[in-house]
Design a binder for these strands. Sequence first.
DNA 1: AACTTTTTTTCGGACACCAAAAAAAATAAC
DNA 2: GTTATTTTTTTTGGTGTCCGAAAAAAAGTT
Lengths: 419, 419
Amino acid sequence: MTRKADRDQIRRQNRSIVLQALRRNGPMARIDLGQMTRLSPATVTAITSDLLDQGLILSLESEEPKAPLARGRPRTLLKLNPEAVYTIGVRLAVNTIDLSLVDFAGEVVREIRTRFDTATADADSFPDALVTAIRQFLQEAGIGTNRVREIGVAAQGVVETETGMVAWSPAFAGRKIPIVGPLHDAFGAECYISNDTNMITEALHWSDPNRYSGTFAVIMLDYGVGMGLYLNNQLFSGASGTAAEFGHANHVPGGALCRCGKKGCLEAYLSDYALVRAASHLPEDTDPITIRAGVSGLARLIELAGSGDSDACKAFHEAGRVLGYGLARVIAMIDPKRVVLTGAAMRAFAFMEKGMWEGLEEALVADLRNNFSLDVMPWNEDFIRSGLIAQSMERLDKDFLGSASAKGSARPDSKELIA
Amino acid sequence: MTRKADRDQIRRQNRSIVLQALRRNGPMARIDLGQMTRLSPATVTAITSDLLDQGLILSLESEEPKAPLARGRPRTLLKLNPEAVYTIGVRLAVNTIDLSLVDFAGEVVREIRTRFDTATADADSFPDALVTAIRQFLQEAGIGTNRVREIGVAAQGVVETETGMVAWSPAFAGRKIPIVGPLHDAFGAECYISNDTNMITEALHWSDPNRYSGTFAVIMLDYGVGMGLYLNNQLFSGASGTAAEFGHANHVPGGALCRCGKKGCLEAYLSDYALVRAASHLPEDTDPITIRAGVSGLARLIELAGSGDSDACKAFHEAGRVLGYGLARVIAMIDPKRVVLTGAAMRAFAFMEKGMWEGLEEALVADLRNNFSLDVMPWNEDFIRSGLIAQSMERLDKDFLGSASAKGSARPDSKELIA
DNA sequence: AACTTTTTTTCGGACACCAAAAAAAATAAC
DNA sequence: GTTATTTTTTTTGGTGTCCGAAAAAAAGTT
């Protein structure tokens, strides 16, 4: 049953809305906040005054408001206080840990890329290594752990959001690597872990909510095959957090050998190693591990196709057909308004497109097929970080409103949150 | 961005909660309502007094409250006023229209099954026929159209919730049959249309919210193959309302001929005609229309399998394997906590089960496979009606609170809603 | 210096909630 | 048969949040 509603809920929600408005539109005057949020001027004053007291926002008086020298009382701009609180974004990929320190305004204050050895990383060794890396990162930044409110992690592979573990991933030798638990214990911050494609999805929604909202799917062809789902206006990650495992959904029963050990997964037809395997006329049951492909192997194949090499072209065309079939299954199951294709392999989209539409047409009845738009998006690794930031900020804007100011205390300069 | 919150929202939500509590638990005293909703006794009195004024609930004074003769002021039970408003549930299937008149307490007041000719039903003729049937039904029931607040429709096949049309369905000869528009125009009531398996999903959630909530999937094997998805605690029907088209998701590229005209759909391996086709050694490209199977053909096949017929057994076993593959794809994509299998074909589940687990194991890597429970549910046609009712009642409980009582007017017996 | 314009704040009212007190309506005790 | 006890319901008064309107503030304009 729905929960009961009370005043507290109103306050939180409206406060959250004000923060969201400031986050999206930068420094704003109260009157504009009122227009944007549809709250009355009186209410805006009340809320912002509270947020100022809490140190979550700042008044921008001193600085020149680049005013067009209009008549009337000049507007005083308000902005988020960047130093109110910090979050950390962590991206885990093969041999790589990317760390970002992000302030409350969503700006990346500091970032670093460190290396680790994927081949030996397992549940025993990796969590400690990660904690150490973050600790050092914070120390160098001069930010105390107590000022870090959240840590968001994005990892390649199968991520169990619920248990906070990486079930298995190309980035790790071992399985079931616990991440959330160790980080929470070490830093006391709230910690979340997600699949990396989910973060791309989140980033798209943040960057253009008009276009990317409601129900849409993101398919990433890169090192492996990933998917992110935005359903009914929220990121969907399933009951245990491993939803959208597009890459390991079966395409052909008993088909090509996949990195996961099963036969016929979509990944076994679409990913780097699959393309190289097909273009080199290696048998379908060639062990993916023995195929040294990666993003560089993919690049070579794209070059070949560009110069008209028929094996390469055929491999891409066939992969396109498989993609079309995969797309068809996603559409049948999810009925998205839009599908976004991205990832390093999108540079080869021209060689796949024809096959893709063929596959889609073969696989799906027209009534279901004609109701979606397709975006092809050039790949940018920063999307993952953007998604982590978007998600963290969204959570902050919603969660930060628990212990509001005590009564109408006559505005003591109580910057508890900063102190 | 989130909408602003105000008092109105609180009032609606709490009123809705009170109605929901009464709906679920039958007649209750105010004090129990308070406990259940966590609203204070004072608030419960205020809200219920308003609802009484509006005629949405009734006080059960006269009747013996089967009191265990306790001390203290006796509790006065409150219950929903059945006559406050009515809804109509419509089930559209092959040659069949089922109509139910449901009162505000969720009781079926009257029901009727009428026949129509599927073979000639198209966008021109059917809507009028449906309106006529409903009009007559209401007349016989002696309920004015103005007392009908909602009409919920469930149809087999591909239903576009957004446009309010049946895109195509075994129940109709034509395509794109408009339903919501004509009904709304004719009766002025809010009208909704859904896929029938979605209604089963809704019914399961209503009947046991503890077990069926969060993220789960329902697969129905019957005349055709249907799916319903409950994701993040709400029914999911996709951007245009045609999500969960499990039956027409491709299983094998270029495979068996499906009723939809495409090759290799899951339905072409799992449905009534597919089973008969396989058991009779007909070629895979035999046109489904020429195969007279239906539920009766299925029943015969089940009998055969029961008596050890090897063709029938093999057909079921193979269908089981396909089901396992389909299941694997659903799990990879959706990661449900639970999957429910139902439909007339479940009587044959014993013959399919082994194959199903085989298929699932072949198709999906273990890490993704072991996180769900499977329910096999004996089929009951009434589920669809239950789902329609559950959905309607849920909507009523939420929407009915727009124009609350005018101020603290000293309780005039204003039964506007009934009048 | 007075007027106009625009933004922000203050003030008082409305309303939905709640806690506590009061009222109501029964049984139990004497 | 009256009083006490118990339990439910209602009433009263208080709090917090929002809002509209009025007031105040802070500029430019005349």
